[in-house]
Amino acid sequence: TKTGDSTGAFTGRLLTLAAAPGAAVGEFGADGAAMIVAPGDKLTCVYLDNAPAARLTGGVIVRVASPGRLELSPPQARPGTVFRVTLHDADLDVDGLALEQVNVTASTSRPGEGQQRVLLTETSPSAGVFTGEVRTNDRVSVGMAETGYLNALEGESVVVSYADASPAGSAEARSLVTVSPCGCAVITADPPSLSAGADLGITVADPDRDLDPLAAEAVSVRVSNVDRPAQVYVEVVLTESGPSTGLFTAALRTLDSVFQEVFFVGPRDVINLSPGEALSASYTNVLPTGPVERAVHVPVKIIGTLAAVPPV
């Protein structure tokens, strides 16, 4: 609508509607006065000028507000690690032809540790994905703000936060990483030798696998009867003894049976064996040097015999 007599200026409004699941983005609503959009979409407004005859075209790009999503990797690492920060926020891509930048804030769970501003750079023009790094030091002292690194020791957390201005009122996006040493895993069996039909306790100590400090997690161990080559292994699920312990345990039942299983067994809590045989429990340790198999050998007890020589 024209703003006034002889102004040559015209204004109008276009209503946008949030896309429902399965809706075709970019289509107009039933009344033709609203456009269906999704967060992160680009709206292009074009005006076709009839005079001069060249019909000049002008356009403007408008971003639909998109909630930011923040990631921090690796999810767990040793002190001194350089963490990678990734921010997904399409509406920060104002210039589709340039690499843009945004600041986020990094801190640790240590009281008094200074905050660091981390500059993130867009991965490519118009990507809406921004990356950067957070550097950490293995120090017990409290670091000053704006030094470019954070001090973090075992058991502490690195926190990166981002205040999203659009949509309005959105909360900060956060990602927590528990910093702990990448020690090699240890697998143990209890008892170290057992009777056929007894339960075998299996324990894995691996702090690297404590990915969520607020939850009790799980790992798997492969157990096989080494004296029955044709018997397929069983997968035993070990549960963390508590949040953030890095200690995983399970009990495997054994059956005193000569029955030979020759098909895939997979996840199971029981395995067949006989006196004189042996079990092998193996666990694949991923950090710090890559996949390494760690195993424990468990012999099955056999009842001894006593004989007199020469016989009476």
Rank of each mutant, 00 (worst) to 15 (best):
T3P: 01
G4A: 04
T7L: 07
T11A: 10
L15K: 15
A20Y: 03
A20D: 14
A24L: 05
D31F: 04
G32V: 08
A34Y: 03
M35Q: 07
I36P: 11
G40L: 13
G40T: 05
L48G: 11
D49I: 05
D49N: 15
A53Q: 07
R55V: 00
R55K: 04
V60F: 12
P67H: 01
S73D: 08
P75H: 08
F83N: 09
V85K: 04
T86H: 06
H88S: 10
L92G: 02
D95L: 10
D95Q: 02
A98V: 14
L99T: 11
L99F: 00
V104C: 02
S109Q: 09
R117S: 15
R117C: 10
T121Y: 01
S124I: 01
S126P: 01
V129F: 10
E133V: 12
Y149Q: 01
E156S: 15
S166F: 08
A171Q: 06
A173S: 12
T178I: 05
V179E: 06
V179A: 14
P181L: 14
P181S: 13
V186A: 13
I187W: 13
T188C: 08
L194M: 15
A198T: 00
T203P: 02
P207M: 08
P207S: 14
D212A: 10
S220F: 01
V221L: 09
R222F: 03
R228E: 06
V232Y: 01
V234L: 11
E235K: 02
V237W: 07
L238E: 09
E240Y: 13
S241R: 05
G242M: 04
T245C: 02
T245H: 02
L247D: 11
F248S: 05
A250S: 09
A251S: 12
D256N: 15
V258G: 11
V262C: 01
F264E: 03
I271M: 03
N272F: 09
E277N: 14
L279K: 12
S280V: 15
S282T: 09
Y283I: 00
Y283A: 11
N285R: 06
N285V: 00
V286M: 06
G290S: 11
R294D: 07
A295H: 00
A295F: 03
K301L: 12
A307L: 09
V309Y: 07
P311L: 13
